[in-house]
Amino acid sequence: MAVQGDAVEVAGPYDRAKALSAFKAGDIAFYWITRACAISVLLILGGIILSLIIGAWPAMKQYGFAFLWTQRWAPSADPPVLGALGPMYGTLVTSFIAMLVAIPVGLGIAIFLTELCPQWLRRPIGIAIELLAGIPSIIYGMWGFFVLGPFLAYTFQPFMISLFDGVPVLGSIFAGPPSYLSVFNASLILSIMVLPFITAISVDVFKTVPPVLKEAAYGVGCTTWEVVRNVVIPYTRVGVIGGIMLALGRALGETMAVTFIIGNSFRISSSIFAPGTTISAAIASEFAESDGLHQSALMLLGLLLFVLTFFVLAAARLMLMRLEKKAGK
């Protein structure tokens, strides 16, 4: 026993010091590894912006600001004439129509899920809507082309044309030969794709409304709609707008589904049933076979898209952060 005790006494301080210094080294290493990983996120963002600017530089030098309002896109001309007006117009129009459909429907679903739906049905419907966000975007493209396209071209468009025949502005919006590939088809598919984002965030922010507020409104005799309209929506307005902006960011950048069904035509047409293109669709369908100035112009398009989505998403996040602060109080 005595011998063992001695051994422990001798070994003790030595092992302890060793273990402590190993702990300390491990601590420092782990701290710096995690910190480096966290900073890599900033590097990725910097890298994206830098690589886009470098790639787009030749096109920027060649076309300058005229790139923004030139409609012609002729990469095989000599020298190539390239302008971003067509894709930019397509991106904005498809996103605008998509939001026009997705906002009311998305909010409607959110109201249904938080105020009207029986408890047992809440989870299945919530999951079904969220699964819509999980379906790969190429599947939406195929579905839009093979199922929605024929329906729109042969049933919906003739109906709209007969309805608005001869009406000055609306008539030309719906005019044109039937085609599976159209701006409207792409917009509709986009609206389904961003629906889950609007719904998910709206449900989240609707849940932050203190029950007392709603109960007080019900207590003085408000109907469900009046409670939503006058209590829930005003209380959560910033968050709902944040969710909508987030969805808009997604819609602006969505690629595969749109590439499939928009027809990739750089001409701007007044009809929403005519083919068009968006920035992302132009990049997706032409980049792999491009070179030189053409490729640089596509990079420049990518840079424009990134700047656009960056500001939309940044605004969305700032709004959601403001709501979080309010909820945290």
Binding site: I39, I48, S51, G253, E254, M299, G302, L305, T309
Partner: peptide, 28 residues
């Protein structure tokens, strides 16, 4: 402070168009 900056940038990357990421990787 770094944390809030990284969180903000990360949230933007989370929704950034994936085709842009393709362009980035093409470049590097």
């Amino acid at each position: 402070r770094l944390t809030s900056v990284i969180r903000f940038i990360n949230d933007i990357l989370l929704s950034a168009p994936s085709i842009i990421i393709g362009l980035f990787v093409y470049g590097i």
